[in-house]
Design a protein around this nucleic acid. Structure first.
Lengths: 133, 133
DNA sequence: CAATCACAGACTTTATTTATCTATAATATA
DNA sequence: TATATTATAGATAAATAAAGTCTGTGATTG
């Protein structure tokens, strides 16, 4: 079980957009170069972020992507859910007589991780980055 | 990102062994039937649990598997680690100038889930099961 | 109109997970 | 000791998912 690379790309792209001057959109080309990934592949990932309402896109010359919400309102969990989906990490496929106790505990465990990610905002990371320069 | 079915099989097998009378070993055949999985495949999974020291095996007639520790000393995390490994769920493959802030947060988030799983013992589930019968 | 950009779909490649098959080693018991 | 029973190991195959490519289309700017 691993987080996908796509999630990594998404998180880094978001962090870059947050750190970037907010007005001007950033093209996928530039974002892809910084991460050593092909623009077409990254654009697929970014489209998911657009559909999730985290960023918006502009076509045409000088187009690209920019944030759609304030950075204090974008959590790690928002981004991860946009890429990985929101389904539970654990599915008990066995047919039980009653509810699966194991499943219940696994869902609770996941919930702990999600709570942390829900509370961790992009603005906090941006703050940390700034304090280094 | 999903927990593997193997982890599900492992957890259910452990729960069964915990609920079972402790002395007599249980054969993989019986364990596999209950979960609708092939004995050879399950035995591979169980071998991992053996190597992790959670259960022990006995060859030959009347052989099988049984717990090696007390049920209060076997956590969900022990079982999951035995099957999935202990590596972090998130690897930042980008080459950063310094430590990856995103990675750091992801590791913390994981830690929350692991803390929960570390504290959740087989004995607790067995207790719940008993209270239903 | 031409250059620049995002978007969509089909496709390929690679990696991982889930098994299966077969042979071998260990053990109990008749 | 012989036989049945059981776990273990390795090679391999099949199924699924992840990662990435290619190509064409549509929107926007200058």
């Amino acid at each position: 079980m691993k987080y996908s690379k796509a999630t990594n790309y998404a998180l880094h792209t978001m962090l870059f957009l947050v750190a970037h001057t907010p007005d001007k959109p950033v093209g996928v080309q530039q974002l892809a170069e910084r991460q050593n990934v092909s623009p077409t592949y990254l654009s697929k990932i970014l489209t998911k972020l657009v559909k999730a309402g985290l960023i918006e896109s502009a076509s045409g010359a000088n187009g690209g992507y920019r944030l759609r919400r304030k950075q204090e309102e974008i959590s790690f969990l928002d981004i991860i859910h946009a890429i990985e989906g929101t389904a539970s990490l654990f599915d008990c496929t066995l047919d039980h007589p009653s509810e699966c106790l194991i499943q219940q505990e696994m869902v609770k465990a996941e919930g702990q991780m999600e709570d942390y990610l829900r509370g961790k905002m992009m603005s906090e990371l941006a703050e940390k980055m700034r304090s280094w320069h």
